[in-house]
C-alpha cells in the first residue's frame, strides 16, 4: 500500500504564507519561495497551498506566482482558492500544479466537480469539506462564502463528492485549525467508513505523533497540518521543519 502521507498545509495571503487559528488572525510565516524550497529540500511527501482570501474576495488564482512556486517543487503540490471553472484548472496544471482542491465552487455547483473530474481525471481533483460544530455541538458543513449550504449529512455530502468524481477527500476541521489541540477522530472515522477514495484530514494537529495516530486510528491516507511544520517551541517561534523518513516510519510502527 502507499505509505501514509504527512502533508504541510500552507496558507497563502497576498503572496505570503500565514498561519491562522480557526482561520482568523493571520500571522506572517514566511516567503513562499523560501518556504517551499525548504520543504522540497527536506523531501516532504507533498505540500498543499490554499489561498485563504481568493474565494472571499472573488479573485482568480495568482497563476504567475504559483507557476514560479511550482518550479521549485520536485514533490507533489496541490492548490486551492478562487478556482471557479475548468479553464482555471487547466491553467494551474500548466503552471506545474498537479492537483487542485475545490470547495466553495462545488458547494455552489456540484456539476463543476463532475466536469472537472471528467476533463482532468479523478486523481487531479481534491474535494474539500470544511466542517464545524453548530451551536448544539454537532458537526455540519461550513461555508465561508455564506453561500447556501446543502442540507445534507456530512457522510451524505462526502458520498456525493465521491460519486461526482473527486479523487481525494480533504476533511478540514475549522473549529480545530491552528488550535494544536488534537484532531477529532470520531467524525473522521464516521466519514472514512463510508468512503472509498483516499482521505486526508486537517485541523488540530499538535505533533507528528498526533498525525500518525489519526491515520492509524481512522485508516485514512494522509494527515495535513500547519503549526506542526512552521512553529517551534513553547512560544511558537517560526521555524520550518519536516521529519525525515526514519522519524515518519517510527510513528507508524
Amino acid at each position: 500500500m502507499a505509505l501514509p502521507r504527512i502533508i504541510p498545509s500552507l496558507l497563502l495571503k497576498e503572496r505570503g504564507f500565514v498561519k491562522t487559528i480557526k482561520y482568523k488572525n493571520p500571522q506572517y510565516i514566511g516567503d513562499p519561495f523560501n518556504t517551499v524550497k525548504i520543504f522540497n529540500s527536506l523531501e516532504a511527501d507533498e505540500i498543499m497551498i490554499t489561498d485563504i482570501e481568493a474565494t472571499k474576495k472573488g479573485i482568480d488564482p495568482d497563476f504567475d506566482f504559483l507557476k514560479e512556486i511550482a518550479s521549485e517543487c520536485f514533490m507533489p503540490i496541490s492548490y486551492g482558492g478562487g478556482i471557479k471553472n475548468v479553464d482555471h484548472i487547466g491553467k494551474l496544471i500548466q503552471c506545474g500544479i498537479e492537483k487542485v482542491s475545490l470547495n466553495a465552487a462545488v458547494m455552489d455547483r456540484p456539476a463543476f466537480l463532475k466536469e472537472a473530474s471528467n476533463k482532468f481525471g479523478t486523481s487531479t481533483i481534491i474535494a474539500v469539506m470544511d466542517i464545524k460544530k453548530n451551536m448544539f455541538g454537532s458537526y455540519g458543513l461550513y461555508s465561508y462564502s455564506k453561500t447556501k449550504k446543502p442540507s445534507i449529512t456530512l457522510v451524505g455530502y462526502a458520498k456525493q463528492l465521491e460519486e461526482l468524481g473527486a479523487g481525494e477527500l480533504f476533511i478540514n476541521n475549522v473549529d480545530l485549525e491552528g488550535t494544536m489541540s488534537g484532531y477529532d477522530a470520531t467524525i473522521i472515522a464516521e466519514i472514512a467508513e463510508n468512503i472509498n477514495i483516499p482521505i486526508v484530514v486537517n485541523g488540530g494537529a499538535k505533533s507528528l505523533i498526533d498525525m500518525g495516530n489519526i491515520i492509524k486510528r481512522t485508516k485514512i491516507s494522509g494527515a495535513a497540518a500547519g503549526s506542526v511544520f512552521v512553529y517551534h517551541g513553547r512560544n511558537n517561534a517560526v521555524l520550518i521543519s519536516y521529519p525525515n523518513q526514519r522519524e515518519i516510519k517510527e510513528i507508524f510502527e
Partner: peptide, 17 residues
C-alpha cells in the same frame, strides 16, 4: 474494489516503495 473482503481505496495516491 476490495481485496479479501477489505475495501481497497482508489485511486492509489502516495509514495510507495
Amino acid at each position: 474494489l476490495s481485496v479479501d473482503g477489505n475495501k481497497l481505496v482508489s485511486p492509489n495516491i502516495g509514495w510507495n516503495e
